[in-house]
Write a protein that binds this DNA or RNA. Structure first.
Lengths: 219, 219
DNA sequence: TTTAAGAGTGAACACTGTTCACTTTTTGAA
DNA sequence: TTCAAAAAGTGAACAGTGTTCACTCTTAAA
């Protein structure tokens, strides 16, 4: 289905959307390969055979362009985490799966995850999270989702109830974010850096989620 | 004591060290206030009344200059964490204190901590950590220190022994790093963002360390 | 006093994001 | 089909960046 480009759109508009998409495509490619530093407007323009100024007919600024890449990336994370939530099985297993999937999806595109949290600009996006009802799954709201996941665990008596769901979720998210960040930033993180450990990424993620969920359990 | 500038140094050399220090001082000021993005060679040159080219007589590149700031910063972190280790009291309290102090010290200069982990360049530094004997405290080696702290806990039977000390330390460091990173990046992190929580930074750090150490305990 | 080393500089190079006047193409209506 | 308005696309420029290089000037030692 190609709804967006077939209803209520003239040929000109469809053409425009195609060029716009080609810019994003080229940006995505460069971004994934070399990160945000390798991405320059002039290089992008070269790659799609337009002048640098042309890009500004489609995006207000480089930041706006990159923000759109990040938005799509976060939507991807949320989708994956959400499907982990909808799986069957005991609560603790679903919870563990969600934590893992967050980190794994984040690490599918390390450059994206890095960029999303290294720019100060990118964090303004989080302002939107405030006015979000976290009872329904929302595009940008991976955190609100985590909160309700935690709340469910508390109701079931499987997670500690001496702190609020939000507080618990913040701690968990911090830990997930830290692991994802270190793996993304330090080449060969769990296995050989900063110390030769022989610990595979898989084993590390397992241990990490295990520690977190144990610490989040009652008593 | 001003050893470095009084023995084996000519007046010229002392003068040189003074200029060099003034560059670092100016850089430190700008860096702390506005982060690495606000720091430009020309601006630095303006502030110390030299030409931009002059700075290259003292530092090979901007990166080299910033690396020196980071190095001092990490030394500061290690110093503080080390003094927490040397405090008296039960092991678990000392351990908790170390975790807290790491995050608190990191957050004394959020811009530094951000910069240290946002540049890919900065991570090359970690190569040095490999050839470090983690039984003795080393300038740059906050991680190796954490490993021995964990090892002590395992020997005392206060931390789980089903995984290696290095693995456990990695997980803990990840979690600390994540919390520090989020607080540094998201203005008003635990209190109001991404959700109004009323959770003070202090309470959050307490909860975070509590969760981690519970998850790291045996059984 | 002379000489060589080192400190300091202005101008330039190659890059960046961005803007703006300008031309070209496309569109919708008379 | 013609014509004006709108939109798409462009080259040149601006202000900024890190960095280099030939050059001057000061300092230190012979």
């Amino acid at each position: 289905m190609d709804d967006a480009s077939s209803h209520d759109t003239s040929p000109a508009e469809r053409r425009r959307l195609r060029v716009r998409a080609s810019i994003l495509d080229a940006a995505e490619k460069v971004f994934a390969a070399e990160g945000s530093e390798g991405l320059s407007i002039r290089r992008l323009a070269d790659e799609i055979d337009y002048s640098p100024a042309a890009i500004y007919k489609y995006f207000g600024s480089k930041e706006e362009l990159v923000d759109e890449l990040k938005e799509a990336f976060f939507a991807e994370i949320l989708t994956h985490v959400d499907s982990a939530r909808l799986s069957t099985g005991p609560y603790m297993e679903r919870a563990k799966s969600c934590l893992r999937v967050y980190m794994e999806t984040a690490l599918n595109k390390p450059q994206h995850y890095m960029a999303a949290f290294s720019d100060v600009q990118g964090m303004v996006e989080i302002d939107e999270w405030e006015e979000v009802d976290h009872s329904q799954s929302n595009k940008h709201n991976a955190f609100a989702f985590l909160v309700s996941m935690v709340a469910e665990g508390q109701e079931r008596g499987e997670l500690r109830q001496d702190v609020s769901d939000v507080a618990l979720a913040m701690s968990l998210w911090s830990a997930l974010h830290g692991a994802a960040t270190l793996i993304a930033h330090i080449p060969g993180f769990p296995e050989t850096k900063p110390i030769e450990s022989g610990l595979s990424r898989d084993a590390f993620l397992d241990l990490h989620t295990d520690i977190l969920l144990r610490g989040a359990q009652p008593q």
